[in-house]
Amino acid sequence: MIEIKDLHKSYQMGSNSLHVLKGIDFNVEAGELVAIMGSSGSGKSTLLNILGMLDVADSGEYLLDGLPIKNLNETKAANYRNKFLGFIFQSFNLINYKTALENVALPLYYQGVGRKERQEKALKYLEQVGLKEWSHHLPSELSGGQKQRVAVARAMAAEPKVLLADELTGALDSTTSYEIMDLIQKINDLGNTILVVTHEDDIAHMCKRIVHLKDGVIVEDKKIEQVRASQYVQ
């Protein structure tokens, strides 16, 4: 699903150049649930941004479902993001004046899906994350866990090829974190490819594979025995 070869990225910090990614080689198959781990400054967020087409690499190859991702203009990047990728952020990033339902329906709006179909689909995904009854509430009326569920539903709504989650439990307490991970696991069980960036060990171990990043290179890449989050959830 994702093929990355010799990816380099450096940031210009005044006169110094900060080499953040120093040649990443990395493949993800369809249906995988991968945790990308590393301390801050290891380059994991940068990698995720490049994978998410929110940022561009200096050199290297990036194929998404066989499609080379390079030299994208803003419009094309936006279209690819809309079609191929779903984002889940640490700070939820819901639009605060839109209801849960409207937030979930927004990616479909940008896909040009008709209003009625949008609402039906959005409701379906809200139901999947267990928030059907909350569909007409504003984000301010929801708890942190509920907001993240809405964000997951939104990421799912466009039916992307890959879900990218950036510290998706970073702003949540551990119980809620497990609930969200339980949801992520269930989505993965349905065959969705998911990448999770985290620095929390327990969260990483709820994935099926852990990729360790240190100082811009992959130091460890191993498949693990998945810890099911459902056992922590009542």
Binding site: G52, L54, E74, T75, A78, N79, R81, N82, K83, F87, N93, L94, I95, L106, P107, Y110, Q111, R154, A158
Partner: peptide, 16 residues
């Protein structure tokens, strides 16, 4: 600005 960022992340083109 933030709202624009969210919209772009979920697929809004600059034109829209």
């Amino acid at each position: 600005t933030k709202e624009i960022g969210i919209r772009k992340a979920i697929g809004a083109t600059p034109k829209r």
